[in-house]
Every structure is written in C-alpha cells, then in structure tokens.
Simulated assay, not measured.
Amino acid sequence: MHWTGAFVLLLFAVLVTGILLTLLHLTRLGKLVHEGIPDRPRRRMFLAALSFFVTFAGVRLLVRCITHHVGPFGWVMMGGRHIHHLVWGIFILLAVGYAWMAEWGSGTSAVSIFWSRFFAILYGVGAALTLDEFALWLNLANDYWSPQGRESIDAVILFGALLAAGAWGAPLFRRRQKKGSAPQ
C-alpha cells in the first residue's frame, strides 16, 4: 500500500491533536498545565508552541522518509503536480482564523474551552506545515535540502521562539520582578 504524504500528515495532525487534548482533559498533566499556566491566552500559546514543534519534527521526519524511500510514503500529486505541505498548512490557518474571528471557543463553558484548545493546537500544526517550507515562499523552488532551505529552519526557530515567549516569557519576567527588591 502506498500512503500519500497528505494522508500521513492528516493522520499525524489528528494523532497530535487527539493526544494533546486527551492529556489535557483526562490526566494529571492537564491539571498541572492549568495550574502552571493560569491564564487562558498563555495556555493557548503553550498548546500552539507544543503542537508547532511536534508537527515540525514529524514533518521533517516524514519528508526525510519520502526522499530516502523509507516506508510506504509518497508525495501528494495532483495532475502530475506536487502539492507541498505548506498548502495544507495554509488551509488549516485559514480555518482556524475563521473560527477565531467567529469567536468559536471564546466562552467559559467546558465545550468552549475544548474548542479553544483544539484551535490552538491546530494553529500550531498549520503554522509548522507552512513555515517548514518558508524557503519555498522566498525562492519559488523546492530548496528543502539545499543551503537555501536553511531559511525555513530560521523561520521555524524565530516563530517557535515567539510562541514560546508568549507562553512562558511574560510570567517568568513578572516572577523575577516580584522576587527581586524594588529599586529605591
């Protein structure tokens, strides 16, 4: 059986989302995240950052397997044209953007909190799929493994750092100010 990259990416995104949501709702880890990251926007940033890095690693592994003919994986082809995974990332980002503009997941009910977390995870997945091929945006060529492909890694590091700073940066700075003595 030959699995296309799209099927594998879809399966991977569903698994990442399902595992993260299960861990957040049904385990002690979810309680720790809720207590450790007390406000909702930072929890969404945390989930987006986590799913972003997991998806980036998974996509890099999948592309490596495809290019080295490891496993039953293959490129997504339509009419003889290779459909890059940044296309799927853009679709996901558009869907999440629409959901957030429609304020889905902005309430305080358990269902609303679930959707808030779900969309945060999908945002991380979509951003990783899109930024993993950032060099393709700039060069309009498939430079995945060339020196120009390094631009994608740089974009991932910068955006991942932004997500991580949003989740952890401000609380860390506030704690430091509270512990230190006030300037006189």
Rank of each mutant, 00 (worst) to 15 (best):
K179Y: 10
I153Q: 00
L136A: 01
L158Q: 10
D143Y: 06
D154P: 04
L158M: 10
Y144I: 02
D154M: 05
W168R: 12
N142H: 12
L162C: 04
K178Y: 15
A164T: 13
A167I: 11
R174D: 12
S152P: 01
N139D: 12
R174W: 15
G180F: 05
W145E: 05
L163A: 02
D143K: 08
G160Q: 02
R175C: 03
A141G: 14
F173K: 05
W145C: 01
G149L: 01
I153W: 04
S146A: 13
L163F: 06
F159S: 09
D143M: 09
A164Y: 06
R176W: 14
V156R: 02
A161G: 11
L136Y: 06
A165V: 06
L172S: 14
A165G: 05
A170M: 11
W168K: 09
W137T: 05
V156W: 04
G166N: 09
G169F: 09
I157S: 00
W168D: 02
A164I: 06
L158N: 03
V156E: 02
L138K: 07
I157Q: 04
R174F: 13
F159W: 13
P147Q: 00
Q177D: 12
R175S: 13
A167R: 10
K179R: 15
R174M: 09
A161Y: 08
A170K: 11
A135D: 12
L138C: 05
G160S: 07
G180E: 11
D143S: 12
L163V: 02
R150A: 06
P171W: 15
A170L: 13
S146I: 08
S146E: 05
W137F: 09
L140M: 15
R150E: 00
R174N: 14
A155S: 09
L138G: 02
W137G: 03
K178H: 14
G149D: 00
W137V: 01
G160V: 07
N142T: 08
G166A: 08
R150S: 01
A135S: 10
A164P: 07
L138Q: 11
A141F: 12
G180P: 04
G166K: 05
A161M: 09
A135V: 01
K178A: 15
F173H: 10
L138N: 08
Q148K: 03
Q177W: 14
A141K: 12
D154R: 04
Q177Y: 13
Y144M: 04
Q177E: 15
A165D: 04
W145H: 07
P147C: 01
G166L: 07
G169P: 08
A161N: 07
L158H: 06
S146C: 05
F173N: 02
G160Y: 09
A164L: 12
D143N: 12
